[in-house]
């Protein structure tokens, strides 16, 4: 009796360990496959959404008279000319002109001011449908637009963000200066 157990148990033990290892191996394989599947799915999701949602950030100069860009999704920035703002509240049609501003600047407020006072700057007509009149749309505001350029050279915007830096940026009060 004792001999039998003595002989049998290492083999049994070995089998058990092997089986356990095997099981662990297959479990691990399952985890790895599962993990890869998840990673693949997430990767594909991000990749396909990136293709679907990407738009090129452009300056007005690059967009005007560039037929390659017609129909492409574009994000664009420029300075708003206040006199050109037209809004029809019944249809929600909004149009205005933006002028070119360079992509690198030190002071946004100054850059915008220079842009709207310089008649030689490239201009672009922007049109938006079914929108409300944005609170911040005014002369010298920076417009950040998403949309596409039409065959007619008009930029059809779908999203509009505005910034009016001169309004809130801290500047030395001129009124304080000339005291005497």
């Amino acid at each position: 009796m004792t001999e039998m157990t003595w002989e049998k148990s290492p083999a049994q033990e070995k089998n058990k360990i092997e089986e356990k290892l095997k099981r662990r191996k297959s479990e691990r394989l399952k985890f790895i496959i599962g993990g890869l599947l998840i990673l693949g799915a997430v990767g594909y999701l991000i990749f396909s959404s990136t293709l679907g949602g990407a738009s090129y950030f452009k300056m007005v100069d690059e967009v005007v008279n560039n037929s390659n860009l017609v129909g492409q999704s574009i994000r664009l920035t420029g300075a708003v000319l206040g006199d050109t703002i037209e809004y029809d509240a019944t249809t929600g049609t909004l149009s205005f002109i933006v002028v070119h501003i360079p992509s690198d600047y030190e002071n946004l407020a100054e850059t915008l001011h220079e842009a709207v006072t310089d008649p030689s700057r490239t201009q672009l007509v922007v049109q938006m449908e079914d929108t409300t009149m944005p609170d911040l749309l005014q002369h010298e505001a920076q417009a950040i637009l998403t949309g596409e350029i039409g065959e007619d050279g008009i930029f059809y915007g779908t999203e509009l963000n505005l910034k009016c830096p001169s309004r809130f940026e801290e500047q030395a009060p001129e009124q304080l200066a000339s005291q005497e």
């Binding site: 999701l45 959404s49 949602g53 990407a54 738009s55 090129y56 950030f57 994000r75 998403t146």
Partner: peptide
């Protein structure tokens, strides 16, 4: 990520708008 990488490697800034987030 996308705006910074595209600017660094392709010299053109690509931004991802609402469509991207509503998809992903």
């Amino acid at each position: 990520g996308a705006p910074i990488t595209s600017e660094l490697f392709f010299g053109t800034e690509i931004t991802l708008g609402k469509d991207y987030f509503m998809g992903v």
